[in-house]
Design a protein around this nucleic acid. Structure first.
Length: 222
DNA sequence: ACCCAGGGTCATA
DNA sequence: TATGACCATGGG
């Protein structure tokens, strides 16, 4: 992984799309909830579920932890997988409360906080890193399907690397910089939604066209 | 009617 | 270690 190429991609994306100002949420806790609800789900559907939680005054760790699973599932319905996500959200909120809430969590060192998050059933590497970066401002690079697809199509990675290998590789190439990681991941998602979609193997007119080899793979691995 | 979306868990080999 | 089944709604 070469720093100049990675920085070149970032510069082009910034030039094409401008500042993204992620994560779209009103509070760190809302970021955490959104990170769980957006698992393999379009954001527009997640937004509906979050709106339901707000309307019913359930965007709160204690309220979610105390809610009946069926009622919580009903509020989450638009985001899909509502039974699964009802449990995952509850697991997370119990962890959050037993850890002492945000003031206490903010004092936990990043690697330890990451391991602690991964111990919650329903929180995998990407969700944990979304939370670490966008709710706690930690310098952790988020790897998602868009990241793999875009970087693989321009030949920067193979795409089938293990999650943590890829994450550390990019982190060490760029240097720990939470503000940069924040914007970079947001730009990759923006570019992915916009033009670098699965069913569009070639992006001959996109801002990364010069480097896009038109590969069609969509690899996934942990 | 189809394909896909800002994944993760669990069972199996 | 590495596949495969499963979870489920809504937009293009």
């Amino acid at each position: 992984m070469r720093r100049p190429r990675l920085q070149g991609v970032y510069r082009k994306l910034t030039h094409a799309y401008g500042a993204q100002r992620w994560w779209p949420a009103d509070s760190p806790f809302e970021v955490m909830v959104g990170a769980i609800l957006t698992q393999n789900t379009a954001w527009i559907n997640v937004q509906q579920a979050i709106d339901n939680l707000k309307t019913e005054h359930h965007l709160d760790a204690q309220a979610i932890a105390d809610a009946h699973p069926a009622r919580l599932a009903r509020l989450l319905r638009p985001s899909g997988y509502f039974n699964v996500k009802s449990k995952r959200l509850r697991n997370f909120c119990r962890w959050y409360l037993s850890a002492g809430g945000e003031p206490a969590l903010r004092r936990v060192e990043t690697d330890q906080l990451r391991r602690s998050l991964l111990a919650v059933s329903g929180i995998g590497p990407e969700t944990a890193d979304d939370i670490l970066l966008y709710a706690f401002g930690r310098p952790v690079f988020v790897i998602d399907a868009y990241t793999r697809r875009i970087l693989a199509r321009i030949g920067l990675i193979d795409g089938d690397e293990r999650y943590d290998d890829l994450r550390r590789e990019i982190e060490s190439a760029l240097g720990a910089d939470a503000v940069l990681f924040n914007e970079y991941h947001a730009l990759l998602v923006r570019h992915g939604k916009d033009v670098c979609r699965k069913n569009r193997p070639r992006c001959s007119e996109c801002c990364l066209a010069a480097r896009c080899a038109g590969r069609t793979l969509t690899p996934m691995r942990q």
